[in-house]
Nucleic acid binder design. Structure first.
Lengths: 202, 202
DNA sequence: TGACCATTCTAACTAACGTTAGGCTACTCT
DNA sequence: AGAGTAGCCTAACGTTAGTTAGAATGGTCA
């Protein structure tokens, strides 16, 4: 057989399986033997591809952020530079939710597992997370400077609220009980208009 | 000595210790021996007070919701019936955050541990959670019917966004780097006014 | 004082975990 | 054809987990 990417395929298979299991059962809930079983190998063979369980989960977490960031970046690029604030917000929210809830087990594994993982893992997966946060801060900052977002809005607070709200949807969203598009629209609409009645300005 | 509440005190001590440790280290990160050590007893003695670790964590989780609900209910009652929407929102947000971030290890343990706990635990702690969600739905619904909140706002979405945003603060908030009051004000303000520029109405 | 009972401790069990050493297999390349 | 090695497997190690049985402790009350 071809030897070139045989190993890489196996490694990818392990990562895919691990992402799915971590997403479903959390960090401590997934044993190495379970990962090996789902990847059609024995537990010992795992160590030919990864140095430890912690190394594996670090890779899963970082790939999760890479995927969601890629998703949002592409969506932004498809917008053109003159999109208004509402469109930017809705599109970014939609892209993030799509990666989290439909496309990537890696992204959902990150959201679910990051807070459960041992400190050493979190340290090695923090920079990527921070980078994604900065990416959103830049995104919102640019839109605000162009007048697309309320000028006196605290964008750090906005990002924290947005991240908290979007990522929490992982815990309750079921694809058969609502579409991601509708969810994204609802979330973006609330974040856009707020809860204040439109008639008055108090 | 008095025998009447000696046992109850010990039981409470175990619960307090467990709530703190769960809050700090998550479900799987806390061993029964660690709980026993912090509660000044040996691991075996624990089983005189609880049937299992799962039973213990169920009690911790439910107490966490009881505490935060009590906090928000009291704050609401202190408002008087003619408070406007902005005040209601800010007060409820502040009360929730206070219980989560300052007053109760039980509440923070619930937020942190619920998603990590085994299914059996989650089932037994779900009703209390649902009850608290309904309490917020009623709270927001009443305010909306009185004209205090935007009439066409989807309140289920609002509650999901609020819960997601508030509870996520547990992961990053540090008391020495900002006050809960300021945080609550910022969150409530964003949720109230949204990100749309105030000049236009698009 | 002595019986009783509530509470705690000691010591162990079983199961599961991450990890490792060393052997087997089958393909590659000379 | 034979040497070398990449990839996987077998079998085990040491640790830790939740849990349990039974002994010890110490206060209460007849």
């Amino acid at each position: 057989m071809v030897t070139t990417d045989e190993v890489i395929d196996t490694r990818r298979r392990i990562l895919d399986v691990a992402a799915r299991l971590f997403r479903e059962q959390g960090y401590a809930g997934v044993s190495l033997r379970a990962i090996a079983r789902e990847a059609d190998m024995k537990a010992g063979s795992f160590y030919y591809h990864f140095a430890s369980k912690e190394d594996l989960v670090v890779d899963v977490l970082n790939e999760g952020i890479r995927a969601v960031r890629d998703s949002v970046e592409r969506a932004m690029q498809s917008l053109g530079p003159d999109a208004d604030g509402s469109t930017i917000l809705r599109t970014a929210v939609h892209a993030h939710l799509t990666s989290l809830l439909r496309l990537s087990d890696y992204t959902s594994a990150n959201v679910r597992v990051f807070g459960q993982a041992p400190e050493g893992v979190r340290v090695k997966a923090l920079a990527t997370r921070r980078g994604y946060e900065t990416f959103w801060d830049d995104l919102l900052g640019l839109a605000q400077r162009r007048g697309g977002l309320r000028g006196d809005a605290d964008l750090r607070v906005a990002r924290l609220v947005i991240f908290g709200a979007l990522n929490a949807s992982l815990e309750w969203f079921r694809p058969d009980r609502g579409s991601i598009e509708q969810l994204a629209d609802s979330y973006a609409d609330l974040l856009w208009r707020g809860l204040r009645p439109e008639a008055l300005k108090s």
